[in-house]
């Protein structure tokens, strides 16, 4: 039985299209989570995860003010909104896919999980 958490335990996100490229924003729930995410979720790791969908290049940008990492996955949409033959022509679901990546439980995970919002 699998007990590893996934990225979704520590982060939320959203994805969309830019022509034939997709962007995936992964946003930590806490400052500690962002520090961990920045070390762990490298462009290489994301490129490996999405290798079956054959992105030609993966770029990573940092937005520390919102504890976010933004990934630009080039040429991953099989033609994009206009000519892709896939059901998800615009990569709308790719953030939820990435958030299901399994991770080792970090030692300070209790500082990284989502706190009660506006109690």
């Amino acid at each position: 039985m699998n007990i590893n958490p996934t990225l979704a335990t520590f982060a939320h996100g959203r994805s969309g299209d830019k022509g034939n490229h997709a962007n995936i924003a992964i946003i930590a729930y806490t400052q500690a989570g962002y520090a961990w995410l920045r070390d762990f979720l490298t462009a290489e790791r994301v490129a490996d995860f999405f290798a079956p969908m054959q992105p030609s290049k993966v770029e990573r940008f940092e937005a520390p003010n919102v504890w976010g990492l933004n990934f630009l996955l080039h040429d991953i949409l099989a033609g994009g909104a206009s000519r892709s033959l896939r059901i998800d022509t615009q990569g709308k679901t790719l953030a939820l896919t990435l958030l299901q990546m399994e991770v080792e439980l970090p030692l300070n995970f209790h500082e990284m999980t989502r706190k009660e919002r506006n109690p």
Binding site: G13, R14, D17, H21, N23, E59, F61, V66, W67
Partner: peptide, 12 residues
């Protein structure tokens, strides 16, 4: 935060 980075390349 989710919408700020939506359909964005380099956020800077």
């Amino acid at each position: 935060a989710e919408q700020l980075l939506y359909e964005v390349g380099n956020p800077a």
